[in-house]
């Protein structure tokens, strides 16, 4: 059984992905496959742990979706993590040309959050809610 918390997180993510980058989760999956993101994260879970450790720094244990998304996208823009460890760099450059920088980084940030929810390998009690608790 999918826990309530995770189901709700996926539902919120579905709405936000659709609204912000105009993609449903299936399309997002296809794009991420081209970027090789899931495979790279699968091979290097440490990088995912690093992203979420920085993202949760000084935040409440239950951050809003907005603040978490902002942190993750900013970490990617600031290259706090080596992007080549998360994506196929050429494919990412192509995506940037196709949809613009903002959209490309947003797609990647959504992808990372989705991968995290899907795997739930890290023991953070995150729930991606719209409103701050």
């Amino acid at each position: 059984m999918v826990p309530q918390r995770r189901r709700y997180a996926l539902e919120t993510l579905r709405i936000y992905t659709r609204a912000n980058v105009g993609r449903n989760l299936k399309q997002l999956d296809n794009e991420l496959r081209e970027l090789n993101t899931d495979k790279k994260l699968e091979e290097n879970l440490e990088i995912l742990k690093k992203i979420f450790t920085i993202a949760k720094e000084e935040m409440s244990s239950c951050p809003s979706f907005d603040s978490l998304f902002h942190r993750i996208r900013t970490i990617l823009i600031y290259e706090e993590v080596d992007l080549s460890e998360i994506v196929d760099k050429n494919a990412f450059e192509n995506l940037k040309k196709k949809v613009g920088n903002k959209q490309a980084y947003s797609i990647l940030a959504f992808g990372i959050i989705k991968y995290y929810i899907k795997k739930e390998r890290l023991p953070h009690p995150y729930i991606f809610i719209r409103y701050d608790p």
Binding site: I15, Y16, R18, A19, N20, I54, E57, E58, F65, D66, S67, F69, H70, R71, R73, T74, I75, Y78
Partner: peptide, 24 residues
């Protein structure tokens, strides 16, 4: 570094809110 990482949160919040409202 933490302050810089947090800068722009308000922009992101407004961006997400506006996009969500447009979508709805």
């Amino acid at each position: 570094r933490r302050y810089l990482l947090e800068s722009g949160l308000e922009y992101t919040r407004k961006e997400l809110e506006a996009n969500l409202q447009n979508y709805l």
